[in-house]
Amino acid sequence: MATGFSDRFTPAAWAAVQNAKKPYGVPHHTDTSVIVYNKAAFAAAGITSVPTTLDTAWTWDEFDQVAKKLRAALPAEKYPLAVNWQGNGVTRWLSWLFEADGRFLAEDLKTPAIDSAAGRAAVDFTKSFFTSKYVPQNNSVKSTTLASDTWYSQTAAMTFAGAFFVPDATKTLSFEWGATFSPRKVRSAGDFGGNALVATAGTKNPDLAAKFLDFMTQADSMRDFCAGASLLPTRRDLVASGINFKVRPELSPVFIGQASSVQPRDSGQVASPSMSKIITVLKDQLESAFVGGQSTDATIKSISAGIAAAVA
């Protein structure tokens, strides 16, 4: 690859394709979760406006107030929220940790760093969704009911969803819905989804492979792909200029704005080679915290011990 090739990507996207400080591929596209909400349910609860810029996104306290209002307005079998942290989506819980400006791996990516005020705040806040009945009990991390299904069936007034889901929701849903930015605490954050394109090291034709990777990440190729597939670009210039989704183009700025809150120090941790083991630790411990009544302190200590064992 030519020198300066990596400059075309956002620092967060480039950080996500590093292994042992060497790039192993090129970030082809990304995606991140924002809040999508049922307009009628919000109106019925007296929530008449939602944040329209990343800087004015609800703080955790404001988000809590919104959920409280919805809880009061909704019948017992409906809920304010469903969170998309099921299955391997448990990494989306980390957004709450990042919003509190916490980390789960220290900068060396080998030491657990979750035992912190930020870690406790994130567990406390997300645990409260269950105790305050903001989410249905089957919205835990090991549930087989996906948050989007809970929201589609209008059991929850809002959920978190990536841009990929816009075309399907538009086609499927009969109710009106909008999108706004994820809540923030110390800062905004988001989960870093997406895929990288890689060429094998032993390829017979490395020059051609490099050319292909270069072509696929040119501005035009990426803009067309992301607009059509409803995914987010990894190029700096496209993030700055924005793109227009083919379906619901007016929602593009919300998703791209949220993606800009992903910091390289966050995406770098999630790209850890031990992530598959850390995912299991997060799943087990958050499940115990959310539906098993495990205390925040015990949860943080167990996640920390689990991460230490996973990266060892």
Binding site: S140, K142, S143, T144, E287, G292
Partner: peptide, 9 residues
Amino acid sequence: FVMTGGGPQ
């Protein structure tokens, strides 16, 4: 696997 994924807990 489909119904409960081994859960809850």
